[in-house]
Simulated scan of single mutants.
Amino acid sequence: MIAGGGDYPPALARIVTGRGGDIFIAAIEGVGDPSAYGDAPVKVYRLGQLGSLIEELRRRGIADLVMLGGLPRPSFGSLRPELATLRYLPYFAKAFQGGDDHLLSRVVRFFEDQGFRVHGPAEIAPELAMPPGPLGRQSATEHQKNLLQRGFSLIEALSPFDVGQAAILADHRVVAVEAAEGTDAMIARVGDLVARRRLKLTEGDGVLVKAPKAGQDLRVDMPAIGEQTLRNVKAAGLAGIGVRAGQVLVGDRAALGRLADELGLFVEGIA
């Protein structure tokens, strides 16, 4: 596993080792905690050490890769390539000439060209993905489901522009769309509008929608929500979250369902 930051890479490692499988973690320098993987073998790499990483994977006889975890988009000039990586630079110079979808698809293609098989996290551990239906006791109302469907349509329509994977809808209209700031910052922006009375949400109206863009490669860029997402949604005065079932990571489903009940939110997977 090529691991970025967040809770999902350690969670996936625990699932694999809990089944008796073997896993090697290549942790990206500065974005994750190498000590979070227990007894699993971990080695830290900076982005400019791609050549060393490939050599290590081949030395270990590894053919199957999964890439998981948060990673701020670097600039091409910040890579500081080692000698073994220099020959790959022309490829990645072109990869950086586009949005995130373009860059990530080129990363996947690069590893495939090197002979590796790239798998999505939900392919390795389906239990990490959102199932159909609600996680807790509360379900979305028909009005809320209509808002969610409008949100899914919005994300699909915006896909060619490589914008974000989330939106907030309320009162039959779009309130916010995720861009480069990320989902949590978008939710906070709406919460600030509510606090300053620039936006009024009636009880049970505002919803967060999270879904992949059309054509998004879920092997390397699968949307995710977590406990902090739920807390942020509650703080902003929203009623709940709707995500595409099977296409968004949620981690510990039972724990997220309990938190949704505690906060009085719905968290629902929509087919």
Results as ranks from 00 to 15, higher is better:
75 S>K: 09
73 R>P: 10
112 E>C: 00
77 G>T: 02
102 H>F: 06
96 F>D: 15
132 P>L: 09
104 L>S: 00
88 Y>Q: 02
76 F>Y: 14
112 E>N: 05
102 H>R: 01
110 F>R: 05
71 L>N: 13
90 P>N: 00
146 N>Y: 10
119 H>A: 02
99 G>F: 09
74 P>Q: 01
95 A>T: 08
116 F>C: 13
113 D>I: 00
124 I>F: 02
82 E>T: 07
124 I>L: 07
104 L>G: 11
93 A>W: 00
131 P>V: 03
111 F>R: 13
94 K>N: 11
95 A>E: 05
110 F>W: 11
129 A>P: 09
116 F>N: 15
130 M>P: 10
108 V>R: 14
84 A>D: 08
77 G>C: 00
122 A>L: 09
101 D>Q: 13
147 L>Y: 10
74 P>R: 04
147 L>H: 13
78 S>W: 02
73 R>F: 01
83 L>C: 12
148 L>H: 03
130 M>N: 12
143 H>C: 03
83 L>V: 11
74 P>I: 04
90 P>W: 05
86 L>I: 06
114 Q>W: 03
82 E>D: 15
83 L>F: 14
83 L>H: 13
118 V>M: 04
120 G>E: 03
101 D>L: 05
138 Q>E: 00
149 Q>P: 09
92 F>E: 02
75 S>A: 06
121 P>E: 04
138 Q>L: 07
106 R>P: 12
101 D>G: 12
131 P>R: 06
105 S>N: 15
93 A>T: 01
146 N>M: 05
143 H>Q: 03
90 P>S: 06
136 G>R: 01
122 A>R: 02
129 A>S: 12
137 R>W: 08
117 R>A: 00
148 L>Y: 08
104 L>E: 01
78 S>H: 14
99 G>W: 08
82 E>H: 04
133 G>C: 10
145 K>Q: 13
139 S>Y: 03
122 A>S: 15
127 E>F: 03
86 L>T: 05
130 M>C: 15
121 P>L: 03
103 L>K: 09
96 F>H: 14
107 V>N: 14
101 D>T: 06
98 G>E: 12
89 L>I: 07
79 L>D: 15
109 R>I: 02
132 P>R: 12
89 L>K: 07
121 P>G: 00
97 Q>I: 06
101 D>W: 05
111 F>G: 10
135 L>C: 13
106 R>M: 13
102 H>S: 09
108 V>D: 14
143 H>F: 08
92 F>D: 12
149 Q>S: 10
121 P>Y: 04
125 A>S: 15
99 G>V: 04
84 A>L: 00
76 F>G: 10
150 R>A: 09
100 D>L: 09
93 A>G: 07
125 A>V: 07
81 P>Q: 11
